[in-house]
Amino acid sequence: MAIATTLIFFLIILFVSLHLHTNTVQAQQQRHSNITLGSSLTPTTNSSWLSVSGLYAFGFYPEGNGYAVGVFLAGILEKTVVWTANRDNAPVPSSATLVLTSDGRLVLQQPQSQDTDIANLTQPASYASMLDSGNFVLYNSDHNIIWQSIDHPTDTILSDQILLAGAGFDF
């Protein structure tokens, strides 16, 4: 009887361990979804790129008489903004477009206006990701991070964010 109980206990532990390992591997593999070059957003149709969990989004959100671009909590009625691009600029109209261009720039395009770079890059991006941490990231062709929103804090600190001494904050 004791051997049977021990065997059952061992099998339960083994099953739980395998189940947890499988879930951990799946979670690690699905931390982000890639946004490819040429992808675009508009305020009134496809207005954001979601993180895999759907918790965070990068894109347009209503601001004043127009729209702003940033990272916000998604899936709730009132968007809670955690990062804003070019936050001192006036809101943009519904005719604006956010594009990850084919030459690797993240650009806000507006009719009758000059394109505005969202990220100042020293090299072209190959793709982007909205991470479940709330960080919007641009990668080069070697899959290295070349720009990330978390390095340009505004008025919200995220759990994985590190504040560097001497960094220019956009408060």
Score class of each variant (00 low, 15 high):
P111K: 06
N120M: 13
H143R: 13
D151L: 12
D155H: 12
L138W: 08
T156W: 01
T154F: 08
S126A: 13
S126V: 00
Q112I: 00
S129T: 15
S149T: 15
T156A: 08
Y127N: 10
L138I: 05
T122V: 12
T156K: 09
D115W: 05
L121G: 05
S159P: 00
A125G: 14
Q112D: 14
Q114Y: 09
D142H: 03
F136M: 09
S159A: 11
L121F: 10
N144D: 12
S129R: 07
Q148M: 06
Q114D: 10
I157F: 05
T116V: 15
M130Y: 12
H152W: 04
Q114N: 08
P111N: 08
I150S: 06
S159W: 12
H152R: 07
F136A: 11
H143D: 13
S126Q: 02
P153C: 09
I118K: 13
Y127P: 00
I118N: 05
V137H: 07
W147N: 05
N144V: 01
I150D: 12
S149W: 11
I146H: 03
S133R: 11
S126M: 03
W147C: 05
D132E: 03
I145S: 13
D151I: 05
Q112W: 05
D117T: 14
W147L: 03
L131D: 05
I157N: 02
Q123P: 01
Q148P: 01
S141D: 07
D115A: 15
V137S: 12
S149G: 08
D142C: 00
F136G: 05
Y127F: 14
L158Y: 08
T154E: 09
L158S: 02
H152P: 07
H143K: 09
S159N: 06
H143N: 14
T122L: 08
D117Y: 15
Q123D: 01
S141G: 00
D117A: 10
D117C: 05
Y139H: 07
D115F: 11
S149C: 09
S159K: 14
S129C: 11
L131T: 01
S133K: 03
A128Y: 04
L158F: 06
L131W: 09
I146R: 01
L138Y: 12
